[in-house]
Amino acid sequence: MKKEIDDGLLRDPLCVVNVGLEGFAADLEAQGLTVTQVDWTPPAGGDARLADILSKLGT
């Protein structure tokens, strides 16, 4: 079912969750954006298939 796209993306200030390369977070912070860097490690003990299943379950 298609839901109308949320156009707040182009209107509201970006508030960013950065998952991965920390340099991106530093660049965004330097531009005055609010950024939270996730201290990411591979989930599900590094099992990508299990991580995929868990994300579908909302975990």
């Binding site: 960013v16 390369l21 991106f24 939270t36 989930p43």
Partner: peptide, 15 residues
């Protein structure tokens, strides 16, 4: 938060 920037290895990017 309204935006996520994801640059983890491809095997985990979709999840």
């Amino acid at each position: 938060a309204n935006f996520a920037l994801i640059s983890v290895p491809g095997d985990f990017a979709i999840s």
